[in-house]
Amino acid sequence: MRPFAYVRAADVDEAVRAVAGEPGAKFLGGGTNLVDLMREGIERPATVVDVTALPLAAVDDLPDGGLRIGALVRNSALAADPRVHARYPMVSQALLAGASPQLRNMATVGGNLLQRTRCPYFYDAAAACNKREPGAGCDALGGFTRGHAILGVSESCIAAHPSDLCVALAALDAVVEVRGVGGTRRIPMAEFHRLPGDTPHVETALAPDELVTAVELPAVPVAARSRYRKVRDRASYAFALVSVAAALEVRDGVVADVRLALGGVGAKPWRARAAEELLAGGPADEDAFARAAEAELEPATVRPGNAFKTRLARATIVATLRELSG
């Protein structure tokens, strides 16, 4: 690991100023992703600003029935919160499907949003990677792509967004609150992560000095009946090949409300709007689920190593909706 300066921020403004004043500085949450990447020499911040002492670790009720989640709430704490269990089971399930208990005890909500791709070529400094080094090329193209995305990809990068939590947040229209030297902004989840296009190194709408302070979940009544289904290469402790966050309300055989988002297949946490539109107001049966899944996956760009994901995603979407409609 390269030598770096370590700063522990006492309040939010100090943290933001510390990062703003220093090119190449980074916030440090639980460190479960940043420190790994620093060890590999992929991230090389000159300064890390530890934000874990900031007073951002509470989960509060919002007047409309939603929740405001502090950016420093640990993944394990959020997963165990009874309000999350009751109102947004998909959030709990997504968190518990991720990483390991030890990692979840360390990982923060802010860090989870900002975690970087698990593309193995991104992790290997000897490989060519446009995300690490714009213009260098992409060794994943023509390489092993089992973990790579099929939706929202570009010719410069096909990396998948690895987060489970973010898939649930995308389904729920969460809003990310951020603070920079210029003040506070609210970014809808759908706009928070960027598609690679020809700038895969730009991953989010966040400015370098902006700190995630909270994530707000609006009231989403349908989410009380929701599910996060994660399909992967072993029973636990693996990233998603495909995951589905779904909420469904069926009245008289007709889809009254639906939320659907996908993980493992998207260059960013993938809200399945095309599928939702097809489903809304229509029959809640196997055929309709399959047609909706196909519509969502229609624009997929596959490689030999990840072509199976189209079929797998379709099967997982249908199975999850079937389960929720039963």
Binding site: R118, P120, Y121, Y123, D124, G143, F144, D233, R234, A235, S236, Y237, A238
Partner: peptide, 14 residues
């Protein structure tokens, strides 16, 4: 390409 316990999948307890 997968020289780590995160990406080389030995069985876990589950």
């Amino acid at each position: 390409v997968n020289p780590s316990l995160a990406e080389y999948h030995v069985p876990v307890h589950a």
